[in-house]
């Protein structure tokens, strides 16, 4: 999960990750995934290092990072809740349930609560469409969300 890091550490961790993965065909996404796994987001200070080692411009690296929804530019909250907003979950009332969760937490989509406890993100399909509505809480899947589960979830991630 997210850790505080200074420029020096970011540079050295990024270099190590690149070193390890550079020989792959098309190493960019594996490198970015690994960086995000390590820091919890993709630090701006990683980009010039990647550009240098992969012989790309910094703009090209920024272009890739900004294209993909998964990559965060800043750390997420201690807990990350990803709620599926796609059609199958809509048919089972996810719109009302997610509004309820967001209002209980006092945040909007993609936002982190002021105390840094929780970030809520929208996702489009977790493949749990036959037991909708579904969400992923800190990497763990939950299905058949209802009012009671949403209330319990709001409580759990606020602690």
């Amino acid at each position: 999960m997210s850790v505080e890091a200074n420029v020096e550490e970011i540079t050295s961790v990024t270099s190590e990750i690149i070193q390890e993965l550079q020989s792959l065909e098309g190493p960019m996404l594996p490198i970015l995934n690994e960086i995000q796994d390590h820091f919890g987001f993709v630090p701006q200070d990683s980009l010039p290092v990647i550009a240098d080692k992969l012989n790309l411009s910094k703009a090209e690296v920024h272009g890739v990072v900004s294209f993909y929804h998964d990559y965060r530019s800043e750390p997420a909250g201690d807990h990350v809740v990803k709620i599926c907003r796609a059609e199958a979950c809509q048919s089972m009332g996810v719109n009302e349930l997610s509004e309820k969760l967001l209002s209980l937490l006092g945040i909007g989509w993609g936002e982190t609560s002021d105390n840094g406890k929780v970030t809520v993100e929208a996702t489009y399909c977790l493949g749990l469409c036959a037991c909708a509505p579904a969400a992923m809480v800190d990497g763990k899947l939950v299905a058949r969300l209802d009012d009671a589960k949403i209330e319990a979830l709001a409580k759990e991630v606020s602690q």
Binding site: A88, C89, C125, G127, L128, C129, A130
Partner: peptide
């Protein structure tokens, strides 16, 4: 990259 809502056969 099975992204369609309502599908999970690949998964």
């Amino acid at each position: 990259d099975e992204g369609d809502s309502g599908t999970f056969a690949d998964r």
